[in-house]
Design a binder for these strands. Structure first.
Lengths: 123, 123
DNA sequence: ATACAATGTAGAGTAAACTCTATGTCAAGA
DNA sequence: TCTTGACATAGAGTTTACTCTACATTGTAT
């Protein structure tokens, strides 16, 4: 299937301005039809989903850009891309660990508040 | 103990510009000495650590601002603050779950790459 | 006495990632 | 034929959270 930018925008939940911005930043390169309109494919959909995953895990656009560049070069860059992902996996892991630590402290604070409120209510 | 902005900056790993910015945004209100210099206390240190925790878990400055406002009003706002933390706890939990999901997908992708690379190497 | 280092204020500048505006083209329906 | 509505480009504007600059003041070491 092929999609116009409007359709693709709905499928991806990314505004059409954002899609054009991503193209401008070379993250994605949709084809064009005879009228110069963008033609997105299902492959683009998979790719955008992956971009969103990288973004959601804190990878900056610049780095995704680099990944996209390697991807465009195809097979010879496979291992370099894998190394990027492995390194990203590491930071993601650290991120999760830190958030869990924060969660623990937050829980402690909430418990503290709970005790405070109880002791005031009892007065 | 009391600290000058320079000392406090080192203790907190926040630049002095950032500390003044936080003050401007009413996140923290250090006392002043006779010469109008800022005087940070150990209580400020604990508070800044908590601010950092909220920031690191994705709470925007505006919301921390609101929390700080309630905190300044003292005891009567205890339960409202606790509710904020409970609600934040929920989003933090969702955040962690989503990152774990992303991690899973990332691992799958890495494994896929590994197999690709192996099959090419064997050629 | 004077130079220096840290501090003060006010306001400008920066970076990232969008988001919007102005203006123009073009195919399809009334 | 005329008018929408979706799309195109180029470039300006926005938001968040800093970060820096310019300039004034002040306590301390030489």
């Amino acid at each position: 299937m092929e999609y116009s930018i409007g359709e693709f925008s709905k499928l991806t939940n990314l505004g059409i301005h954002t899609l054009r911005y991503y193209e401008h930043e070379h993250l994605i390169t949709p084809g064009r039809n005879s009228n110069n309109r963008r033609c997105y494919t299902d492959k683009d959909l998979t790719w955008i989903d992956f971009i969103k995953r990288l973004k959601d895990t804190g990878m900056p656009i610049k780095e995704i850009q680099h990944y996209a560049e390697l991807r465009a070069k195809g097979e010879p860059t496979l291992s370099e891309r894998m190394e990027m992902l492995i390194s990203h996996r590491k930071t993601l892991n650290e991120q999760i660990n830190q958030l869990q630590e924060h969660m623990k402290k937050l829980d402690e604070k909430i418990e503290f508040y709970q005790r405070q409120i109880e002791s005031i209510t009892r007065e």
